[in-house]
Amino acid sequence: MLVLSGLLVVVLGFAFRVNPLLVVTVAGLVTGLTGGLGFLKTLATLGHAFTESRYVAIVWLVLPVIGLLERAGLKERAREVVTGMQRATAGRVLLAYLALRQVTAALGLVSLGGHPQMVRPLIAPMAEGAAERDVHDIDDATRHLVRAHAAAADNIGVFFGEDIFIAIGSILLIKGVMEQAGIIVLPTRLALWAIPTAIAAFVVHGARLLLLDRRLAARNTRAA
């Protein structure tokens, strides 16, 4: 059970808002040490795993393109497109994105989204631009809330869309784990049974996005 002390480090570290890089590194070292590896062997294990995990950072290769477009006014253009459409409120913009993200993920098009390539340069400026137009003298807290909602719409859309696609990693993992236990499950049936939760996710989060619009509108009447 001592091997679980790494998890304890993680929980305490995040709860007390210690720098996450430090928390994770210490958790890795503690796990290795309590597992009896010794310091050098533990550090080597962590170094090996880190090097093998470099593929996780490949998403950042998109930064030169995004930076180049931001330099040429991409965010400003995204903002302008939405502010020109009076009916496109922050909540509705994000609702449309949630639907798009869920549907495309369900078709296996998971790469049509993501925080560096879609949310930062396009979706967040669109939602923030709409909120800016609709809320007089918008304060920073409101801006930040709208931006956080843009990131959340991307996450919720992809999580509760991708499992409807039969060749996605999670479906293949389920199939593999169940097979090890001697139970054969069909990817098509797994995907089918992801649909009820997907619909619930759209209803629940969609309703919250429309409530966000009402909250934004309420800030106006309070100010007036």
């Binding site: 890089l21 796990t31 962590l46 093998e52 950072a57 950042w60």
Partner: peptide
């Protein structure tokens, strides 16, 4: 900033957890 490196480090931590048998203990 440093957050760019965090997902990779977490993936490494996951591998260390797996090697140390954290899953089995849980």
């Amino acid at each position: 900033g440093w957050a760019a490196m965090l997902p990779q480090l977490l993936a490494a931590l996951g591998a260390v957890f797996a090697a140390a048998g954290v899953g089995a203990a849980v």
